[in-house]
C-alpha cells in the first residue's frame, strides 16, 4: 500500500514538473516559436479548400482549429500564430516528416503503410472510393471503364487501388494522375476522362463546385472503406496525445455536429451549394468511440 502510494506520488510529481519543463518535439517547437504550421489542401471540398483568399476553410480546418486550441491550453499560451502551408496529396507526407508542417488536417486516409512514416490522430471521417461520371456516360461500375480514360489524383489511395486493379483485371484503362482534386475534376469536366475515381465525399464536394451539378453522378462499388485522420510526426506521443484529446473533446462537446451541419448540410462557398450529405453510420460510430486505428486495423 505504502509503496504504491509513494510510487504514485512520485509519478504525479514527475508529471507536473515534466509538463512545466520537459517539453519535447512539436510542442516544444510551438512553444518556442509561438507558431504552428498547419498543412491544408487546395481543393478538398468541403474538408480543406481555398474558398476565397488564401485562408483555408472546411470541416478539417474546424478540427485543426480545435487541435490548435487544445495546444494553447496545454502550453498555457493565450495565442498561437497559425501559419498555413498548402500541401498536395503527393507532398503531404514528406512535409510532415521533414518538419515543414506540424499538423495536416485535410482528407488523408489513415492506413498501415502510411503509419510507417507518420502518425495519425483519432479518425474524423469515413469514406469509400467510388467514381464520378456524367449521368449520360453510361458508366455504372469499374468494369465499364475497360479501355477508357480515367482520372484520379496523384498520391492518393485511389491512385494505387486503380493502378493495381487495372493491372490485375487487365482492364486496359488509361489512368491520368492529376495534381489535385480540382485539376482531376477539370480533366473530367473538359471531357479528357470519362470518370474520376476518388473518395465519395470529395466527389460530392467537386459536384458542388460544378457548373451544373445535376449533370453528374457518383457510381460504382466502393473499392475500399477508409478513415481520415490528421497527420502529425511519428515518435512524438506528447503532441499526438494533445491532438487526440482535442478530437475527443470536439466529438464529446457536440461541436462536431455544428461543424458537420455547416459543411455538409448547408450552403457552402464558393457557389453556395448544399451538399446534403447525411452523417453516415460509420462516422457516428467514430464519434461515439474515437480511435486512431485505420480501417484495416478495425
Amino acid at each position: 500500500m505504502k509503496k504504491s502510494l509513494l510510487v504514485s506520488l512520485a509519478i504525479a510529481s514527475l508529471f507536473s514538473t515534466a509538463q512545466a519543463a520537459e517539453l519535447t518535439g512539436t510542442l516544444k517547437k510551438i512553444k518556442e516559436s509561438g507558431t504552428v504550421v498547419l498543412g491544408h489542401r487546395d481543393s478538398s471540398i468541403p474538408f480543406s479548400y481555398l474558398a476565397d483568399g488564401s485562408k483555408p476553410v472546411g470541416f478539417s480546418v474546424d478540427i485543426a482549429n480545435a487541435i490548435i486550441d487544445e495546444v494553447k491550453k496545454e502550453l498555457g499560451l493565450p495565442a498561437i500564430k497559425v501559419q498555413y502551408n498548402l500541401v498536395t496529396s503527393q507532398t503531404r507526407i514528406p512535409l510532415v516528416q521533414n518538419g515543414t508542417v506540424d499538423v495536416e488536417c485535410g482528407s488523408t486516409t489513415n492506413n498501415i503503410e502510411r503509419q510507417q512514416q507518420v502518425a495519425f490522430t483519432n479518425g474524423f471521417f469515413k469514406i469509400g472510393t467510388r467514381l464520378l461520371t456524367k449521368k449520360t456516360s453510361g458508366i455504372k461500375d469499374f468494369a465499364d471503364l475497360a479501355g477508357k480514360n480515367l482520372v484520379t489524383t496523384a498520391g492518393t489511395t485511389s491512385e494505387r487501388q486503380i493502378k493495381k486493379l487495372n493491372e490485375e483485371k487487365k482492364l486496359g484503362m488509361n489512368i491520368i494522375s492529376a495534381k489535385d482534386h480540382g485539376e482531376s475534376f477539370l480533366m473530367l469536366e473538359s471531357g479528357r476522362a470519362v470518370a474520376f475515381m476518388m473518395d465519395d465525399v470529395l466527389l460530392a464536394g467537386e459536384m458542388a463546385k460544378a457548373k451544373n451539378p445535376a449533370d453528374w453522378a457518383i457510381v460504382g462499388t466502393p473499392q475500399s472503406s477508409e478513415i481520415y485522420g490528421c497527420m502529425v510526426r511519428k515518435d512524438d506521443p506528447a503532441f499526438k496525445a494533445v491532438a487526440d484529446r482535442a478530437l475527443v473533446n470536439f466529438f464529446k462537446s457536440g461541436r462536431v455536429n455544428a461543424s458537420y451541419t455547416k459543411w455538409f448540410q448547408q450552403p457552402i462557398p464558393p457557389k453556395g451549394l448544399n451538399m446534403n450529405f447525411t452523417m453516415s453510420e460509420g462516422l457516428k460510430a467514430l464519434i461515439a468511440k474515437p480511435t486512431d486505428k485505420s480501417a484495416e486495423q478495425m
Binding site: N149, N174, I175, I176, G191, R192, A193, V194
Partner: peptide, 10 residues
C-alpha cells in the same frame, strides 16, 4: 481528348 491515350495528348 478521348481518342488519343491521355499520355499521348499530354
Amino acid at each position: 481528348k478521348q481518342g488519343l491515350k491521355p499520355e499521348i495528348s499530354g
